[in-house]
Design a protein around this nucleic acid. Structure first.
Lengths: 153, 153
DNA sequence: GTTGGTAATGGGAATCACTACCAATAAGGG
DNA sequence: CCCTTATTGGTAGTGATTCCCATTACCAAC
């Protein structure tokens, strides 16, 4: 059941006690073939089409595992359900952040002005980790507001 | 039942069709008297102590309303329950962001390095709103990692 | 003060995303 | 090919939040 666009993830599962299974491959495939921000339910639906045996429990369990393995990232936009994306390094999108519309909940990816961001992050992360003795591993940057369509209404 | 620390919010409720009620005053009081990040349940418990008639539904409904009125802010740290704070302008904390520990879920407020942030935000917000025709009203900045206590374990 | 209309309340039932449990199954190293 | 152990998928739960609706509080006009 090898399909187009499938990536080989064996290496990531070697030596850590975890196994590469059909559901895991399927979930990673689905996330690798989309630009959208998928919920667990979305992923279940998509996987179901070519692997109808999949169970919702398995989807949730594996999403958690893949987040722990840093292959995927989980976002809580506060819209009720969590959304998942491949980690920057495995995604065609690369490093990006989100513009979130408060009205329609649409999420727009952007990867502009990363130079300004890097400068800001570098100084701020260094300062914060010293003051609060906090080992910073990641950041979350989002801009909220009203998208073009919603501002016309 | 006027208690210490109570603030007068009448002005914010004038002319918008909403009324200032006991539950609303109570919820705002509770949020005004704490530095913590309170969940709906936390707020219910705190209000219950001096207003035992309060209902959970009322708490949720009013939290939503107060968020719409921009008197309070809702945060989804992804820990299962939403947390609420007074908006910067009404809070003693002023403008701040959060350090979130991935292990113990602790949330630390910080308001350092705001100069760097302002510079970054100014240029980035301007650029993004032009490119994406997006009216930016707010931003969310968070640093994730491991706090001092957790890094010792 | 009474009335009338709308906003707001509170209780329980319902929903929705997610998790725990467990017997059955399937990786994958030896 | 076998054996150990990770993994699966179904069902029953859990916990946060929302819906529904009859009752109540507020406020302005008479």
């Amino acid at each position: 059941m090898r399909r187009h666009g499938q990536r080989h993830w064996g290496g990531e599962f070697k030596g850590c006690g975890y196994r590469m299974t059909k559901p895991r491959q399927a979930i990673l495939d689905v996330l690798g073939e989309t630009d959208e921000h998928l919920s667990a339910e979305d992923i279940y639906q998509a996987v179901y089409k070519f692997y109808p045996n999949i169970g919702m429990t398995t989807v949730y369990r594996n999403l958690e595992l893949l987040v722990d393995m840093s292959l995927i990232v989980r976002f809580d936009f506060g819209h009720g359900r969590a959304k998942y994306e491949l980690t920057d390094q495995y995604s065609e999108k690369g490093h990006h952040h989100h513009l979130v519309c408060k009205k329609c909940n649409k999420v727009i990816d952007y990867s502009d002005f990363m130079n300004d961001e890097v400068k800001f992050l570098k100084s701020t992360e260094k300062g914060l980790s010293e003051i609060y003795k906090f080992r910073i591993t990641d950041h979350l940057i989002q801009f909220l507001g009203i998208c073009e369509e919603c501002s016309k209404k």
